[in-house]
Simulated scan of single mutants.
Amino acid sequence: MRVWRQLTDLVARHGSAALITVHDVKGSAPREVGAHMVVRPDGAFHGTIGGGQLELRMLDIAREMLAAGRGPARIVDQALGPDLGQCCGGRVKILIETFDGRDLEDLAPLVSAEAEGGLFEVECRMEEGRVRREIGSAVGDDRWAGWHETQGEVRTPVLIFGAGHVGRALVLSLAPLPFSVRWLDDRENAFPSHLPENARAVRLRDPEAEIAQAGPSSFILVMTHDHPLDMAITAAALKRGFSYVGLIGSATKRARFEKRFRELGLSDETIRSLVSPIGLPGITDKNPAVIAASVTAQLLQVREHGSPAQNLSPPAASNDT
Rank of each mutant, 00 (worst) to 15 (best):
4 W>S: 04
5 R>W: 03
6 Q>I: 01
7 L>K: 07
9 D>W: 00
13 R>F: 00
14 H>M: 05
20 I>T: 09
24 D>H: 11
24 D>C: 05
28 S>K: 09
29 A>W: 12
36 H>A: 06
39 V>E: 00
39 V>S: 09
40 R>M: 01
42 D>A: 09
48 T>P: 02
50 G>M: 08
51 G>P: 09
53 Q>F: 01
54 L>Q: 13
58 M>N: 04
58 M>R: 13
60 D>G: 15
60 D>K: 12
65 M>Y: 06
70 R>M: 05
70 R>G: 02
71 G>F: 00
73 A>T: 09
73 A>D: 12
75 I>Y: 07
77 D>Q: 12
78 Q>T: 12
84 L>E: 08
85 G>P: 07
86 Q>A: 02
92 V>A: 03
93 K>P: 02
94 I>T: 10
97 E>T: 06
98 T>Y: 06
103 D>G: 07
108 A>S: 14
110 L>D: 05
114 E>Q: 10
115 A>Q: 14
116 E>T: 04
120 F>Q: 12
122 V>N: 03
128 E>A: 15
131 V>C: 06
134 E>F: 08
134 E>T: 14
136 G>A: 14
136 G>F: 02
136 G>V: 06
136 G>N: 13
137 S>W: 02
137 S>L: 13
139 V>F: 15
139 V>P: 07
142 D>V: 12
143 R>L: 06
145 A>F: 03
149 E>A: 10
156 T>G: 05
158 V>S: 14
160 I>V: 14
160 I>G: 00
161 F>K: 07
164 G>N: 08
164 G>Q: 07
165 H>F: 13
167 G>F: 05
168 R>N: 12
169 A>N: 15
169 A>Q: 07
170 L>E: 03
171 V>L: 00
175 A>C: 08
190 A>N: 10
192 P>G: 08
196 P>E: 13
201 A>N: 04
201 A>R: 07
201 A>F: 08
202 V>P: 04
203 R>V: 11
207 P>V: 14
213 Q>K: 15
214 A>Q: 11
214 A>M: 03
215 G>T: 14
216 P>N: 09
216 P>K: 09
219 F>W: 08
220 I>D: 11
221 L>R: 01
224 T>E: 09
224 T>A: 03
230 D>Y: 04
231 M>V: 05
232 A>H: 11
232 A>Q: 11
237 A>E: 00
238 L>H: 06
240 R>H: 03
243 S>V: 13
246 G>E: 07
252 T>M: 02
253 K>Q: 01
254 R>N: 06
255 A>S: 14
256 R>V: 04
260 R>F: 12
265 G>E: 02
270 T>N: 01
272 R>I: 00
273 S>W: 06
275 V>E: 05
278 I>T: 01
281 P>V: 01
286 K>W: 02
286 K>V: 02
286 K>Q: 08
287 N>I: 03
297 A>Q: 04
297 A>N: 03
300 L>M: 12
304 E>T: 01
305 H>Y: 12
306 G>P: 08
309 A>V: 01
310 Q>W: 11
311 N>D: 03
313 S>A: 13
315 P>G: 09
316 A>V: 00
320 D>W: 06
320 D>C: 14
321 T>I: 14
